[in-house]
Amino acid sequence: MARLSRQPVIAAALLLALFAVAGTTLVALTEQQTRERIADNQLQALLGSLHALVPAETIDNDIANDSVTVSDPTRLGGAETLVYLGRKAGRPVAAVFTSMVPDGYSGPIRLLVAVRTDGTLGGVRVVSHKETPGLGDKIEERKGDWIHGFLGKSLTNPGIERWKVKRDGGDFDQFTGATITPRSIVKAVKNTLLYYRDHGDGLFRPAPRGTQTDRREPHG
């Protein structure tokens, strides 16, 4: 092999470089071909989960792109929390918090918590978690109905002191063999409701430019 070229190292390096260029080209072309579709998939997935909590017919804004970032680590979990805003004809309908549960059984749990303007819950969904399969993972919608139990609840229904799992004297079910997971989620949802009670009005203003101009049109 070495006899074929006087400088095998350079030949080898050139060959390697050639393949690096070919490989990169392949990846770049694929990326270019799929970019639009992937972005669209991600948007559809986001819209799908938002619309499950805030039905599409109850809002008329582009909720996926109408959001604010707030910061309240004690009540919303993360250092920064993205809040999607649902509006109809410019009026607030619901806010969807990407709350984080800091004290799950094994690591943080990410939630979507939809709070309607009257302070009731439009629903809660678990976005990601690392809870024990078969025990704590009944919080997933596809593995149990538990998460649907939040629909329509508010700080007055049940009363704020009833926002606990039954074992702690509250209104919410725990799971056999897994109390910590439901307990931490109930607490996080309650904290999100408390945040909304105190700061909810501030979320919807200022409205994003697009919505604002729409509202000032004569027909609005």
Binding site: T24, L26, V27, T30, E31, T34, R37, I38, N41, A45
Partner: peptide, 15 residues
């Protein structure tokens, strides 16, 4: 290179 291309394709078509 092939794995990255397949990953992108799956993200696009089997999201």
């Amino acid at each position: 290179s092939f794995v990255t291309a397949v990953e992108l394709a799956m993200n696009a078509f089997f999201h």
